[in-house]
Design a protein around this nucleic acid. Structure first.
Lengths: 129, 129
DNA sequence: AATAGTGTACCACTATAATAATACACTATT
DNA sequence: AATAGTGTATTATTATAGTGGTACACTATT
């Protein structure tokens, strides 16, 4: 039997960087924090952040300008969104569906709970304003 | 920032034991494989399986009879199913819903894909017979 | 009584990820 | 030119999970 590998910290950091790009906190063509800065911010070793950034370069979401720093690539948002959507549809959904069948949960119940969820989110967002 | 802990092998084995109880492969009051047997079967150290079994004892799904082995507890199936359902509703669904909102996926699309999924499962199961 | 199969406990070892601490080459700024 | 801020590379160290191996107490069977 093969076991699921633990998700490395560097990968979790890369995910969070994607989140911030998605949310618009870090816009396209903008410079993102240096390896050292983010390392301090995350309470993590600079080498770990360096690995995160490297993996994001491999995925074409950020680019490096030597001696200056890392920058968000032009259409990074769209690209990240596309990646996440594909992964969700092809990886997570099948797992979800199998779980539903195993537990005997019908899609109607999912929809019904989703209504509740999106309502409560709307309310709590409204309260903040 | 706190990072998600990797899921231990012993825990993954415990999950799989639950699966086998759920599927009826190991019925209530029945004896399950010894620590050593399952360890060989899984290609894993006996100590690791021992930890899995211990955690299942803690969760009241199996019990130990000294010198004999481990046995599935009376209503283990119902108990496991209940646990999984609760975890699914309270932990996985909220995560799913947040992802859906982030990716802009409407519940109708989920339902539609679920139909496709359950159809394809039916077909492939039918082919086996 | 003897034996073989149980779970349990212990300890040293290994593999891996992450850390810590440097050192180096490059760039912008002064 | 000097300096400070970049990323990068290297090496040793730490922390942890899992392994390997052994020993022990208990139980059923012979």
């Amino acid at each position: 039997m093969e076991f699921s590998q633990p998700k490395g910290i560097y990968q979790q950091i890369a995910d969070q960087v994607c989140e911030r790009i998605l949310s618009g906190e870090w816009a396209a063509e903008e410079r993102i924090p240096s390896v050292r800065e983010l390392a301090v911010d995350m309470g993590v070793n600079p080498n770990t952040v360096a690995r995160s950034y490297q993996s994001l370069v491999d995925d074409m979401h950020i680019e490096n300008r030597r001696g200056i720093g890392y920058f968000v690539i032009q259409n990074a948002r769209e690209r990240i969104l596309e990646n996440m959507k594909n992964r969700f549809i092809n990886m997570e959904l099948p797992r979800l569906f199998r779980t539903m069948q195993k537990l005997g949960i019908k899609p109607e119940e999912i929809v019904q709970r989703y209504e509740q969820f999106s309502q409560s989110v709307q309310v709590s967002q409204g309260e903040k304003q």
